[in-house]
């Protein structure tokens, strides 16, 4: 579960600060390392910088100071296109809102990142998308449009899309924020399986202390700084 001594961690933030041009500091001086197979909860009060940190870790935003290393590579040296390519192939995002494209079926939504990456031919891409939908219990939803699905199903389709290109790292920003307890637990069941059975790393921002407790590690933020980092059950 942990990296060997020579291996760089999957993801590392080194003294990362993100300040807006207006002078607002979103996160300050954050240093964190994430190994393969970790299940991390990021918690903290509203406005503490959880989302900001997640966008930085997910290469959607760039730090104003410090650096983010993905698999040992300093991402500050990469241009926008290279970052996009990394997001496409290595990362998967899940947000509070599902962000499914409303004109396309679940299957087509999941196919978007697969087709964009272009590593699979049409048949294999379809098989991959169907397999993902299947493991999330969405076989029947494949041909349905997002508006025809329940909130929980939509969020699971969004997770399937995040998993489309077999990413090493899944980043989720309050993925259960719009879900009831049962559906929220189901989402965490999926995350747990991704970590335990498939060895992926999941970093999830959550408000819910019960859900946070299901993770292996918990990073707590206050005012853009890490105030505690340790086992979640503590």
């Amino acid at each position: 579960m942990s990296d060997g001594p020579a291996d760089p961690p999957l993801l590392a933030a080194e003294r990362v600060t993100r300040t807006l041009p207006e002078g607002v500091t979103l996160v300050a001086d954050i240093s964190l390392r994430f190994a393969r197979g970790e299940f991390v909860a990021i918690t903290g009060p509203s406005g503490s910088g959880k989302s900001s940190l997640l966008y930085l870790l997910g290469l959607l935003d760039r730090p104003t100071e410090g650096r983010i290393l993905l698999e040992g590579r300093d991402t500050a040296e990469l241009d926008a296109e290279e970052l996009a390519a990394l997001r496409l192939a290595r990362l998967g995002f899940v947000f509070q809102f599902h962000f499914l494209l409303p004109e396309f079926s679940s299957l087509d939504n999941v196919l978007i990142p697969i087709r964009r990456l272009g590593r699979l031919d049409a048949a294999a891409a379809r098989a991959q998308a169907m397999r993902l939908l299947g493991t999330l219990g969405l076989d029947a939803a494949a041909t349905k449009l997002p508006e025809q699905l329940s909130g929980g199903m939509r969020q699971r389709v969004a997770i399937a899309r995040a998993l489309a290109n077999d990413p090493a790292l899944i980043l989720a920003d309050e993925p259960t924020g719009n879900l009831d307890t049962k559906n929220a637990a189901a989402v965490f069941d999926i995350f747990e399986r991704l970590v335990r059975e498939e060895g992926r790393t999941v970093i999830v921002v959550t408000h819910d202390p019960d859900l946070a407790r299901r993770c292996s590690r918990r990073v707590h933020l206050v005012d853009g700084r890490v105030v505690s980092d340790g086992p979640a059950s503590g």
Binding site: A80, A84, L86, L88, A89, F93, P113, R116
Partner: peptide
């Protein structure tokens, strides 16, 4: 706007 944002976060480039 939302669709553009998600496509970009999924790894679509500005050119795309």
């Amino acid at each position: 706007t939302r669709d553009i944002a998600i496509l970009k976060s999924l790894g679509f480039t500005e050119r795309d």
